[in-house]
Design a protein around this nucleic acid. Structure first.
Lengths: 343, 343
DNA sequence: CATCATTTTCGAAACGTTTCATCGTCCTCT
DNA sequence: AGAGGACGATGAAACGTTTCGAAAATGATG
């Protein structure tokens, strides 16, 4: 900018005024400055600007795993929304690890991100403290925590799982295995509640041997399913509370020599783009990923636009049960299912 | 930092020296400073540091679509690698759009990213110019362009497709449909070459009606497949040169009332995590995504570590044909396949 | 004890912007 | 003609660091 000013024989203040339109500059000088900018190929340095202005037009986004299709889609939507608004997005993956998450959030705050969208991990206490003394708006995504009182957008997980389990019960299933992720994040807690309530509403017992915990990964789903399938009285259906884990479930079913849905019905949380193309077509709880991402982005953009003191807004969206052919009616003739498998 | 200095009754220079370890400071002052840092809760401002140092410890990463599983995985690996090295990653998705890409790269350079990893889109000319006068190291990912002479890591696309098509030919297929992405990026060009060469090597004609172009999206694969299947002499096999498009292919096959592999064999580029769980299990060309991401990260990290003048390093990795059950031998009894479908 | 070498500390400039108060200039109005 | 206003341009301070050369303190040496 100094060079531009010299070349145009004006002060840097004038160049800045012209570039930002913060003051009127005479046509004559404008022309000289614009020419100089072209000649020199000047580009404003965003870092210096950030330092002076106290804003970086950059936000931080942390998710547990970008390879989880749910987060892939949400990240994609959020990235697009901020791109449109002229913001850059710094992406971090916490790998479901608390320390990693804390480090990454600190890293982002050090870099003066203007806001944060966090699909948190673990206990909210540290997150709360970090966020409190960093003075940036935060939107919690997918996972809320009691202590932290900020904008958030989550799914009505309890209801969604309630509906899915009730669907299985209606099909005649009585022993329904449930594979949960770690219990310390809100969705897993709420989903489990939905499972229990659905059983209770149907007057079915809640048997702890039917509930298994994993750490969100495919291998966890595999191991949990192996355990469920080796019970002396094995479940006739399995619900997996997370998307990557259901892959493990399917692999376990295959490896043990059973097949879905003939021997065992399967449903899970989170839809796949290809779920209605391959067999079995999984019955899933689809989250409105697009809406979730856009709402989260809008909440943050609104804060960034200056609406700082509005009370926390907590959005809860509804999931949708996508009924396909991975769950079979118990006692019904196999024909209906088999026909659709080999169609 | 000023506050820390005052609280500890030292100069800012001393505080800086202690924090960075750039000079020895006496135990006494060290203690006072550390105490003050704790009392005040001081965090170094990375933006100011960046301005002074000319380095942000941030890199830019642009990919066409993060929802393409190939890029999802690569982004994930790259993000992890830079996280380990203490770098932040700014992620941009170009949506296969040239102008978007240029804008985003400029945005990243304005923010003084230390380096760039680019899975480019479109003609390399503009990219080359942008990159030339920004003085940051660039690694080209997946897609190279002739003009731009930088580090790169790509797949041996030609060979990979050659192998896949040859496999189909060996199964007895003679009319093999081919669905390509836009032709102006190197992998699509090379994959097409592999297709042609495989046909030629087998003495088969190259028929233009069997080749269709799409823009990488599911819907493009759908439309292309619809066209191929409505040819009066339809192909017995289809190869899709990209991953999202094959979903469209499968949907088209389903919608038209055919099934895979009984009526039509399908293979495609890029593996899915779930490809050996659901039916049909797709035969794919698997890219070594982990190696690709890590190599790209390493190339850039090496430049960032100071190795600036080394000649451009161009890495070419090998794909691997994952043979599953979505392609059937022509003329062979159906039994072998059907058995595995319903296994 | 004076001198010199070494270690520790510090003041100030610099990075590239933005912004604010000030200063000219030129009009317009009595 | 002098005063007051409007407008355009500018100099300088500030944002929060790092770094360099110089100053101060300390220790060693003759």
């Amino acid at each position: 900018m100094l060079h531009v000013a010299e070349a145009a024989r004006v002060s840097v203040a004038t160049v800045s005024a012209l570039i930002n339109g913060t003051a009127t500059v005479s046509p004559e000088l404008s022309q000289r400055i614009e020419q100089a900018i072209l000649d020199i190929g000047y580009k404003r340095n965003a870092i210096a600007r950030s330092l002076k202005m106290g804003t970086t037009r950059t936000i931080g986004l942390t998710v547990p795993h970008i390879t989880n299709p749910f987060f892939t889609d949400v990240v994609s939507v959020i990235q697009q929304a901020f791109d449109r608004a002229g913001y850059a997005v710094m992406l971090c993956c916490t790998d479901e690890d608390l320390n990693t998450q804390d480090d990454q959030i600190r890293l982002l705050l050090d870099r003066m991100v203007d806001g944060l969208i966090v699909a948190r991990v673990g206990d909210g206490a540290i997150l709360k403290r970090i966020v409190d003394d960093a003075n940036v708006p935060v939107v919690l995504l997918d996972r809320v925590c009691e202590g932290v009182d900020t904008d958030s957008v989550v799914l009505d997980n309890q209801r969604a799982v309630f509906d899915a389990i009730t669907y299985l019960i209606d099909l005649g299933h009585r022993r329904i295995g449930y594979i949960s992720g770690s219990f310390d994040i809100s969705p897993m807690h709420d989903r489990m509640t939905g499972y229990r309530e659905a059983l209770q509403a149907a007057g079915l017992p809640i048997e702890s041997e039917l509930v298994r915990f994993g750490n969100f990964h495919e291998v966890d789903g595999y191991n949990a399913t192996m355990q469920l399938l080796s019970l002396h009285d094995r479940p006739s259906a399995i619900f997996s509370a997370n998307n990557p884990m259901v892959i493990g479930t399917m692999k376990a079913i295959r490896d043990i020599g059973l097949s879905c849905p003939e021997d065992i019905s399967v449903a899970c949380f989170d839809d796949f783009p290809w779920s209605d193309v391959f067999q079995p077509q999984l019955t899933t709880v689809a989250q409105p990923v697009k809406a979730i991402g856009e709402q989260a982005a809008n909440l943050l953009l609104d804060r960034l636009a200056g609406n700082r003191d509005a009370p926390p807004r907590k959005l809860t969206l509804k999931g949708r049960l996508m009924i396909r052919n991975s769950c079979r009616p118990l006692g019904a003739p196999m024909g209906a299912i088999v026909q659709s498998v080999s169609a």
